[in-house]
Design a binder for these strands. Structure first.
Lengths: 144, 144
DNA sequence: TTGATTTAGTTAGCATTGCTAACTAAATTG
DNA sequence: CAATTTAGTTAGCAATGCTAACTAAATCAA
C-alpha cells in the first residue's frame, strides 16, 4: 500500500476544492449572524481595516462589485457608525473611506468568531494536516 | 534554511484558510452570472441532482436555510422549469422535489463552467501542489 | 377516540446585497 | 476651451435571507 494515487486530474481536484470551499464557508457563515452586520459590510470593512483607507471605487474593485453597490454599502456603513467618508484632497470627485474604531472592533469580533469556530475544528487534526492546510491556503491565494 | 516553520497555530491556519476560501469562491462566482440562474438555485439543484429528490424541509436543512426561504426557492425552480414537486405518498403534509431534465442540464453546465475555470488555474501548478490541494479538499470536507 | 401538540409547508412582509440605467460634477485630453 | 473620461450618486429591479403568523396533516396522551 501507500502506492501513489494516479496523478490528480485538474478537473477532479477543481471539483473537490470547489465543493469543499462552498461547504466550509456555509458552515462559517452562520457565525456571522450573531453580529448583526451583514457579510458584504464585514468584507468591505475587512479591506479597510487590513488594507487601509481607500476610495469607493477602489473598494468596489477589491470587493468585485459595481460602483453603485459599493456606494450604497458605504452609506450604510457610515449610517451604522462603522466607517466615515472624507473628501480626497487630490481629487474633487473622489472620497476616501476609513474604518471607525467601532468598525475595527466589530470586524475583530466577527473575524474572531469565525476563525475560532474553524480553529476549534482544526485543533482536532494532526499537526501535519494543519500544516498541509496552511500550505493549501497559500496555494489557493496564489491562483489569482 | 528549509528550517521547519513553527508549528501551525490553529488560529493562524483558520484565518488563512478562511480568507482563501472567500477569495476562491468570489472569483468562481463570476462564472455563474452567464448562466442566468442564481447561486441559491444552483446549489439547491446540486443537492437534488447529486443527492437525489427529497422534501423541501430536507432541502432546507441541506442548504442551511429556513423553511420559508426554501419553499419560495422551490417555487421559483418550478416556475423556471428546473424542478418539480410531487406529493409525498407517505405524508400528506410533505412534498418531494425532483430535478427536471433541464435542471440537470443547467446544473451540469454551471458546474462545468466553474470547475473549468478553476481547473485552468490548477493546470499551471506542479503536480505535487495539485495533489496537496486534493488532499486539502478532503480534509476540509471532513472537518464538519 | 379525541384533544393537544408537533411537524411540513405556505404566505406576507422586511432587510440586505447584487445589478443596470441615467444622472451630476470634476478631471483630463485633444 | 470643448469633448471625453472618471468618480460617485440615485432610482428602481431581482434574488435571497429572515421572522411572524397561518393551514393542514401527523402523532401523542389521556
Amino acid at each position: 500500500m501507500a502506492e501513489r494515487a494516479s496523478p490528480p486530474a485538474p478537473r477532479a481536484v477543481a471539483d473537490r476544492l470547489h465543493s469543499a470551499a462552498i461547504h466550509l464557508l456555509r458552515a462559517l457563515r452562520r457565525e456571522d449572524r450573531a453580529l448583526g452586520v451583514g457579510p458584504a459590510k464585514l468584507s468591505a470593512l475587512s479591506v479597510l481595516v487590513f488594507g487601509g483607507p481607500r476610495s469607493i471605487g477602489a473598494l468596489a474593485r477589491a470587493e468585485q462589485v459595481r460602483l453603485p453597490t459599493m456606494s450604497r454599502l458605504v452609506s450604510t456603513l457610515e449610517r451604522d457608525g462603522l466607517a466615515t467618508r472624507t473628501p480626497d484632497p487630490e481629487d474633487g470627485r473622489a472620497s476616501r473611506v476609513h474604518p471607525t474604531a467601532r468598525g475595527r472592533s466589530v470586524l475583530r469580533q466577527g473575524r474572531a468568531r469565525r476563525v475560532a469556530m474553524l480553529a476549534r475544528r482544526l485543533e482536532q487534526l494532526p499537526e501535519a494536516d494543519r500544516a498541509l492546510l496552511a500550505r493549501a491556503a497559500d496555494l489557493i491565494e496564489g491562483l489569482t
